[in-house]
Amino acid sequence: MQRSPDLDNHSESPVHTEPPGEPVVHIRQLSKCYHRGGQIIPVLTNISFDIMHGEFIALMGPSGSGKSTLLNLIAGIDKPDSGLLKINGTDIAALSESELADWRAANVGFIFQFYNLMPVLTAFENVELPLLLTPLARDQRRRRVELALSMVGLRDRMEHYPSELSGGQQQRVAIARAIITDPALLVADEPTGDLDRSSANDILAMLERLNRELGKTIIMVTHDPHAAQSAHSIRHLEKGELELKKH
């Protein structure tokens, strides 16, 4: 891996790599609509906002308000219809499909509501997966994976398959997978949506720690006000329009 901070330095906190003031997410007049059965459904209309380095944002709003759509655009797994979408200085709307794949691998860590682990791979292998796209050698990968799993408290569950882990543990494996390539940006879509209160609290505490100690910029979609409390700021999406609410 070419970028710092390196996982190995995680104890020295907090680490900020880019100069503060430069936004990680820079969005202007962003619009997105879906077509369904000849009908055009506008989901996001003329959204503009920035997210600074090291921020931890909660994205809230009623179901169907376009939270996931916005998150997917920022994470580079969906394309906007119009507007500017600059992440870490890269205009990702202009990237080709394969450039975007490489960009995602290097810049974004994904945390999904239903964990999305490969059921045929062990916790270790799931976390190792993104590293297979890097030139890291086998023992370097092993060191990193072990470290990441220690950070989420699952060092002793490395050889377990997802089906042998609880929901909370699976989400922790997913978090380890999300940070393994040391991306600057973590996107989490309802990361606690499928968990009980105490597991959810564990996950939220872990995200706060990643933000605080490793300086990760985190965007978390949630409809749970309690979960949103973990974030620095909350933004509400209402009928495709954004409003800011700091706390």
Binding site: I77, S98, A101, D102, A105, F110, N116, M118, L129, L133
Partner: peptide, 8 residues
């Protein structure tokens, strides 16, 4: 998911 992680 694999695609999101960057696999082609």
């Amino acid at each position: 998911t694999l695609k999101a992680l960057g696999f082609g």
